[in-house]
């Protein structure tokens, strides 16, 4: 049993990271959108705009549907946000600087990712609205397809560490980062990471062609919380990518935690930029690609990284 940090410190660290991270996601999203569109960049407006939209949502009048499942509807954003926090708690900033490092950290993180589909399904099912349910089904189909490549891609990072603990996985990358050792791992992970928080090209469940899918009936604080939870999950995915594939705290000159932040930021920019650079894919083609291409590639990845360790 490794020592865990105190509850107050853990809540402060994860909560602080999530709030800052979510705000950063909102700012980066607007910034990259302006860069890609070639629009003029106004720094002050970029920084203030997310707060303004959030405040607007906070005072918006709430509306409801006919016979919704009210507890489920209220619970879904909270569950999603909690899953992001749980995933983030597994990411180490340094060898001894981690909120929680269970011996099965990899499985805990995967379980959090798997539960996202429950949160999204609940969110789409509970308002009792056709578009929302349609979005929930889309996410179900997508999530069931990318779950297996995701697990396999993450599993390959546990092979060199000979452990399921995230700290051990990072520690094993001292000489060689996993992104070099398993070149297929990070791309698969990033594709799935975009899908988990249904961002940009894989925004199938909350897509504009479904009138915002699962969140079509959301209003006011419920909509705000759902957006925050989505962005929080994106931050958690980027942070875990930095730990699992980019060597976490390892790096020259700068201290370890700074490296983690820099790598997380790089992945976050990549994830967000995908939303502005790539068109949204269709669900049929994505499911086909996930089953027929990503799973064999991920298996190959596991096989190769296992063979190099022999």
């Amino acid at each position: 049993m490794r020592p865990y940090v105190g509850a107050e410190l853990a809540i402060l660290a994860i909560g602080g990271t999530l709030i800052v991270g979510v705000y950063l996601v909102a700012v980066l999203d607007r910034l990259l959108g302006a860069v890609v569109a070639g629009a003029p960049i106004r720094p002050f407006a970029l920084v203030v705009d997310p707060a303004r939209s959030a405040a607007q949502l906070l005072v918006q009048q709430r509306r409801t549907t006919e016979r919704p499942d009210a507890p489920g509807w209220a619970f879904a954003p909270a569950l999603f946000f909690g899953l992001g926090a749980l995933a983030l708690a597994m990411v180490p900033l340094g060898p001894n600087l981690v909120v929680a490092d269970p011996a099965t950290g990899f499985v805990v993180f995967s379980a959090a990712i798997a539960f996202v589909m429950i949160a999204v399904f609940l969110h789409g099912w509970s308002p009792n609205s056709p578009f929302a349910l349609h979005g929930a089904y889309r996410y179900g189909a997508a999530a069931l397809s990318f779950q297996i490549p995701f697990l396999l891609a993450m599993l390959a990072t546990a092979l060199p560490a000979q452990s399921l603990s995230i700290v051990d996985i990072v520690r094993a990358q001292e000489t060689l980062w996993n992104v070099v050792r398993e070149p297929l791992g990070l791309p698969i992970y990033l594709i799935v990471g975009v899908g988990v928080s249904f961002w940009g090209p894989l925004n199938l469940s909350d897509a504009s062609d479904l009138a915002e899918g699962t969140s079509v009936e959301d209003s006011g604080i419920g909509r705000l919380l759902w957006k925050v939870a989505r962005a929080g999950m994106l931050v958690a995915v980027a942070a875990m990518g930095a730990a699992g594939f980019l060597g976490g705290w390892w790096g020259p000159l700068l201290p370890g935690p700074v490296w983690v932040l820099v790598k997380t930021l790089v992945l976050l920019v990549m994830l967000i930029a995908s939303g502005h650079l790539l068109a949204r894919v269709r669900i049929e083609s994505f499911v086909l690609v996930a089953w027929a291409i990503l799973i064999p590639l991920a298996l190959l990845n596991v096989f190769v990284s296992g063979a190099t360790l022999l």
């Binding site: 798997a114 539960f115 179900g140 069931l144």
Partner: peptide, 15 residues
């Protein structure tokens, strides 16, 4: 391990 795998497995199954 068993506990976490049970939770992980069931999420997909319930969906």
């Amino acid at each position: 391990f068993l506990g976490m795998v049970l939770i992980l497995m069931m999420a997909g199954e319930m969906l």
